[in-house]
Simulated scan of single mutants.
Amino acid sequence: MKWFADFSLLLVALIWGVTFVIVQNAIEFLPPLLFNGIRFFLAFLILFTVLLFRKKIRELNAITWRNGLILGLCLAIGYAFQTIGLLYTTVSKAGFITGLSVVLVPILSLFILKKRPTPLAIIGSFIAATGLYLLTAGGEGGWNIGDFFVLIGAFGFAFHIIFTDAFTQQSSAVALTSVQILTVSVLCSLGGFIMEDWQTTLTADNLLQTHVWGALLITAFAATALAFFLQTHAQKFTTPTRVALLLAMEPVFAAITAFFWIDERLAAAGLTGCLLIFFGMILAEIPIHKFLPGHVVQKEK
């Protein structure tokens, strides 16, 4: 099952990487917050149907709702700012900036969980930060407001990873995922109706655009319901470090997709920045303690 778990996580990274281009095309017709609101509501309907079919509605208890609301808030911040950022920046830059969440996790864990990061995690963070500078300020087009929005989103995803680690043992995976996805849908929809011109854009003409309904169906099923289910299931058969390493391929897939699909190219400084961010993400997740003298190998639960 371990090889299947690794394949599943690599598939998740591929799905998330490819959908950067799909989402960017869709939000030319439908505002980003409303797009996410509809996308996550469709994904919730899919997962809720699974709960009904499996007769697991009772798993939606008070603890699950509390934890799901917290995780949903983190995800809403991540997806809302990431999608808004795609209005102003490129797919490649958005993918690699989002990938910084892997590096942010050990840093934020120090302050939230009082868990000291490894030396390699600290070094990896500095390398990734240097890469971020080259990708944005030193890259083609320079630093822009879209890059800043995507960076805020990366913090949201990092907090989501940290809190997920604390909550997964307290609730059913499908039930917990359902609540957080519903939370994202509600928050993004409210934000869309308050801050976006929904009267003009939420029309049949826009919703019937191929870029819009195609993106909604693909992201709702593949990039949300299926991807989160695969990630949750796969983590039972592999280590957290391996999970992070495999998901770090997401920005690479995003850049490759943007290159072949929309002919998006990075300048030399931007490409160097991408390589440094990717190297920093990998370095931050290397379990150096396992190679130190006196380390006792324990069976992964």
Rank of each mutant, 00 (worst) to 15 (best):
K2T: 15
A5N: 09
D6L: 11
D6K: 04
L9E: 05
L9K: 01
L10A: 15
L11I: 09
F20Q: 06
V21Q: 04
I27E: 03
P32D: 03
L33W: 04
L33F: 14
F35V: 07
F44Q: 03
F48N: 08
V50Q: 09
V50S: 10
F53Y: 15
K56L: 10
K56P: 02
I57N: 09
R58G: 08
N61C: 10
T64W: 08
T64P: 07
T64V: 13
N67F: 11
G68S: 07
G68K: 05
C74K: 02
C74I: 05
L75M: 15
L75D: 09
L75I: 13
A76H: 03
Y79S: 09
L87Q: 14
T90K: 02
T90W: 00
V91W: 00
T98N: 06
L104C: 07
L104F: 15
S109W: 00
K114P: 05
S125I: 07
F126E: 04
G138C: 09
G138H: 08
E140C: 01
G142R: 08
D147T: 00
G153K: 02
A154M: 01
G156N: 08
H160S: 13
I161T: 14
I162Y: 02
D165Q: 14
V174C: 04
L176K: 07
T177K: 00
L182G: 09
L182D: 08
S185W: 06
V186G: 11
L187F: 14
C188L: 09
S189E: 09
G192T: 02
F193K: 07
D197T: 04
D197C: 05
T203Y: 10
L207P: 11
L207D: 14
T210G: 12
G214M: 07
G214S: 07
I218K: 03
F221T: 14
L226S: 06
L226Y: 05
A227N: 11
A227K: 01
H233I: 10
A234Y: 00
F237H: 13
T239H: 03
P251H: 10
I256E: 06
F260G: 09
I262F: 06
A268K: 12
A269Q: 12
L271P: 03
G273D: 04
G273W: 01
I277H: 01
F279C: 15
G280Y: 01
I288V: 15
K290V: 05
G294S: 02
H295L: 04
K299N: 13
